[in-house]
Design a protein around this nucleic acid. Structure first.
Lengths: 112, 112
DNA sequence: TTTGTATACTTTGCTTTACAAGGTACTGGA
DNA sequence: TCCAGTACCTTGTAAAGCAAAGTATACAAA
């Protein structure tokens, strides 16, 4: 269910944007985010990637984390977007479209 | 004509694959590759990115460079794919499809 | 002749990012 | 008691894009 692994270098700069877009759909905590990324087809992104990234995004005021107790295990830290995060998510989506449009010309007609 | 600049971090790992796909369409030299990338919408990728990358790809035996004189300026180094390069280009195209499919779920329906 | 522009390639060092490896701690079942 | 599943954090490493600077050729303008 984890799917093939996308090369780590290929994810650089994209993972942060993808996480912004996921959180935009509704608040989520790190562990669930890990499963969500796998379900979406991003592969099994390790925790050593996800948690440091979430902390960096919080420092950058893109996301806001609130800790809530869980009845089935340790506390969970739920994240939602700040106003900055909303802006960054929109900007990233736009930049992604541009990149995807450029790539389309190489994988579609260009493949011969 | 250069278009908006795609963030450098977003290009990591993708630029190499894009260059493989471009060279697959026909041999090309570095300076022309720079213009081609701009035309395709990848933005104005600086020479400090393109030339070191081409040299690395040549060391990795993905591409083969042959120097030819030009009547309008300095020598040009034309690159074409090796067998390894062909394989890597195909593999990259497949990995890109997976990433694009995952991203589509976040930018299409998920955007609400 | 000299200067400048476009062409064309190379090198060095910096910054950012994904990741491996290891750690802490809570819950519930064997 | 022990272990698996859940949930989060920290440290250090390697890879990639890029800025900055350099070298060199052809050609047109001054």
């Amino acid at each position: 269910m984890a799917g093939e692994r996308i090369p780590s270098q290929m994810l650089k700069g994209i993972l942060e944007g993808a996480i912004l877009l996921i959180i935009r759909q509704g608040e989520i905590y790190g562990y669930a985010l890990h499963e969500k990324l796998s379900t979406l087809g991003f592969g099994d992104i390790p925790e050593g990637t996800i948690y440091p990234l979430l902390l960096k995004m919080q420092r950058n005021k893109q996301i806001i984390g609130v800790r809530h107790p869980s009845t089935t295990g340790p506390d969970r830290k739920y994240y939602h977007l700040s106003a900055t995060g909303e802006r960054d998510a929109a900007l990233f989506a736009q930049q992604w479209m541009q990149l995807a449009a450029a790539m389309d010309q190489l994988t579609q007609g260009g493949a011969l």
